[in-house]
């Protein structure tokens, strides 16, 4: 089952004096359970592509489908609906809401979608346990370490059981140990829940966690390689 289908997508920003072509005809496809890493130097267009794939933005040209939805056909509200039901996000800076507790942060997507509170909180509890944050549920983000924040963000990203997880440099702000734990977790989720993941990163180490690595340069796909080096989950990941 194809979760994400990108066909000759272009994205041009007309912000400044000269239009910037960030994505220049990219095609790729993610099936359910795929774990793909986007690699490339700054300005290669991977962030723009990621935004497009995360339904944050619409392509200038080309076709972009997430499951059955064609992004070009959707208005802002429909994009929002799509995001909150089918996509999860993990960011470099965690982007937890500082004014909400960990539990509140995790339940946010469900509640925004109008979901049931009790169910959401039960699920948040389970996920917290899963990512090892049970004792942190009542805490505020700023009381957490970077790794903990990112794990909380991951719990938030999957609470509504999305079809696609967009991860933008999820380890960029973490030390190597915490980075490894996060990557482990991603791998686990990918395997256990058949979660489709699109991850953008600078680091080869991080990219290595994926099944496929897509390298980008100047808005185009430069190369695609398949890795077999998928790390095994280690019990150490759960402390």
């Amino acid at each position: 089952m194809i979760i994400l289908s990108v066909e000759d997508v272009r994205k041009t920003y007309v912000g400044g004096e000269t239009p910037v072509e960030a994505v220049r005809g990219v095609s790729l496809s993610l099936a359910a359970g795929d774990f793909v890493a986007l690699m490339g130097p700054s300005g290669c267009g991977k962030s723009s592509l990621l935004h497009l794939c995360g339904a944050m933005d619409r392509p200038t040209a080309g076709r972009l489908r997430i499951e059955t939805a064609d992004l070009a056909q959707l208005n802002d509200d429909q994009l929002t609906k799509l995001r909150r039901e089918r996509i999860g996000f993990v960011f470099q800076f965690f982007n937890l809401l500082p004014t909400l507790t960990v539990r509140e942060n995790i339940t946010l997507p469900v509640l925004l979608a109008g979901g049931d509170v009790t169910a959401a909180e039960r699920r948040a509890g389970e996920l917290a346990e899963r990512v090892g944050l049970t004792h942190r549920l009542r805490h505020y983000p700023q009381q957490l370490s970077g790794g903990e924040m990112q794990r909380a963000a991951m719990a938030r990203a999957i609470i509504h059981e999305p079809a696609l997880l967009i991860a933008d440099e999820p380890t960029g702000n973490l030390d190597s140990e915490n980075g490894a734990r996060v990557l482990n977790l991603l791998g686990e989720l990918n395997r256990e829940l058949q979660l489709t993941i699109l991850l953008a990163t600078h680091g080869a180490e991080t990219a290595a966690a994926a099944q496929r690595i897509i390298r980008m340069r100047d808005g185009k796909i430069a190369s695609v390689e398949t890795t077999s080096a998928i790390e095994e989950p280690t019990p150490r990941a759960f402390v």
Partner: peptide, 16 residues
């Protein structure tokens, strides 16, 4: 701005 954007990302629509 950022927090609101996050909210929007995790699924809050404009009305919300």
């Amino acid at each position: 701005k950022r927090e609101i954007a996050v909210l929007r990302l995790v699924g809050a629509d404009r009305r919300q």
